[in-house]
Amino acid sequence: MSDTPIPISTTLRSPAAAETAPRSASEAAPASKISVRDLSFFYGEHQALYHNDVEIAPSTVTAIIGPSGCGKSTHIRAYNRIFELYGKDRATGAVLLDGENVLGPDVDVIELRRKVGMIFQKPTVFPQSVFENVAYGLRIHFRLSRAEMAERVEKALRAAALWDEVRDKLSQPGAALSGGQQQRLCMARALAVEPEVLLMDEPTSAIDPVATAKIEDTVQDLKASYTIVIVTHNMQQAARISDYTAFFYGGRVVEFGPTRQIFTKPNQRQTEDYITGRFG
């Protein structure tokens, strides 16, 4: 996988030049952590997703881009079955996590959601202290001693690059932190239960640029241990932090491939129009 960020500004200005960029053989799809097969989604009668197929490799960052209302969030909300909170919504097809269909009837949803953590558009700090926010999932899923709990909370806060900023504020209300810190607190909370997949639904859209940069850095650090799927409105962000990119339009996966290829030599006209800012 390429580690160098892609200079999107240059590629956007000269898509023609990008066509000559070589396609590396190493970018062929490895074994998938998540395989989405023929996923369709319905809000009551209204169909929001049409036959989505996506393969997500382990220890990669996959970005989902596309204009508003194209089904990006809806798509990842199937991965942890969070859509089920609302009675009439349903998904068809399959989302295989390590080969097992998470949409199946016998899936332990609670364990699924431990394995597949989620970060939302706005920070969702619980009305508790900083420490208790991170300990939230640990208390639900594990039975830990006080010392183990403290250890795991610190580890999670370190993983979210927040420990140094809050080590003296652990007993303060989580809501007292700044917006960017709150979002990283939510990341720490999700990481504490040692998930395998992290779903991020526009995690930086409500946050200032400095805090955004911190979160992007954190995502890069986390990539080694987690499979990350990030929905984003920000194409530069997708280009900066992702290895693979899926372009959604009208509930369909228009194009999916290595980020470098999507941003330099898209196969579909729609993708090119979108990333060059011609619509959306």
Partner: peptide, 24 residues
């Protein structure tokens, strides 16, 4: 979204209610 986040952590309705909804 706060409730979704709590459910997203793998909580039961009782846990969401006790630890998130009621305190909020």
């Amino acid at each position: 979204v706060l409730k979704e986040a709590a459910y997203g952590m793998g909580s039961t309705t009782w846990e969401v209610t006790r630890k998130v909804t009621v305190p909020f």
